[in-house]
Design a protein around this nucleic acid. Structure first.
Lengths: 108, 108
DNA sequence: CTAAAATATTCCTTGATAGGAATATTCCTT
DNA sequence: AAGGAATATTCCTATCAAGGAATATTTTAG
C-alpha cells in the first residue's frame, strides 16, 4: 500500500499513469507525451514497476508498458475501509465530543 | 489529487489516518498510539489537514482530529477512471501489440 | 494573575529522491 | 560483424521533507 501511494505521489509518475490509462505505450511514446527525457521516464517507470503499478511487455527493442490492475484493486480495497465515512448517517465526531465531555465531568 | 497522494505516501501519516479510521482522536491520543513525539504528530496533522484529509475541532485546549470524507471521495472518483481495468474482458495490451506489429509491416 | 497542560511552530541537520549527463545494454538491420 | 535505435543504468548534485530540540501559543485550573 505504502509503495503504491509513494509511487503515485510524484507529479510526473502520476502523469505517466494517467497517460497509460488510455492504453499501453512504449517508452518512446511516453517520452514524447510527457516532455521528459528518456532516462527520467525509464527511471519513473522503474519505480512504478517496482510498486506493481505497471507491467512491461518487451517487443523487439522496445518495451510496451501498461497498467497492472492488481495495484488499483489494492488501492480500491484500502479505500473500501473508508467508505463508511460517506455512508454512515450518524456523526462519529459528535459522539466523540460527548464522550470527551463526560470523561471530563468524571475527572472533577 | 497529488496533494492527497503525497500526504498519504508517508508511513507515519498513513498510520495516523488508519488510526483515525476508528474515530476522532485528540493529538495526545495520536501521540500515544503512534509512539511519535508530539511535535512530529502535529506536523503530520498539518500536512494531512492541508491536503484536506483531516479536519480539526478545537475543544478547550485540545484539538480533536477526524477524517474528512471529501478527500476520500476524491480518491474514489479518481480510482473510478481506472475501474475499466478489471471490468473489461478484452485485453488492451493485445490490441496494442497487434497495432504495433501492423505499423511495423507498413514500414517495410 | 500565574502555573500547568495541550498543541503548534521554528530552526537545524540529515537522508531520500528527482533530474542531468554520460554510458551501458539489447535488438534489429544491413 | 557493425552501426544504429530504443531503453536502462550509473554517478553526481541539488532540492525537499522528516525528525530532534527548543520555544511559542492557547486554554484551563487555582
Amino acid at each position: 500500500m505504502k509503495s503504491i501511494l509513494s509511487a503515485l505521489s510524484e507529479q510526473n509518475r502520476l502523469h505517466i499513469v494517467e497517460i497509460l490509462r488510455n492504453g499501453p505505450h512504449t517508452v518512446g511514446e511516453l517520452v514524447e507525451k510527457t516532455g521528459l527525457r528518456q532516462p527520467q521516464v525509464s527511471k519513473h517507470l522503474r519505480v512504478l514497476s517496482d510498486a506493481g503499478i505497471v507491467h512491461v511487455q518487451p517487443i523487439a527493442n522496445r518495451r510496451v508498458y501498461h497498467l497492472h490492475q492488481e495495484a488499483f484493486k489494492e488501492l480500491d480495497d484500502w479505500l473500501d475501509s473508508f467508505r463508511y465515512l460517506w455512508e454512515e448517517r450518524f456523526n462519529q465526531l459528535d459522539d466523540y465530543l460527548l464522550q470527551l465531555q463526560s470523561k471530563e465531568e468524571k475527572d472533577h
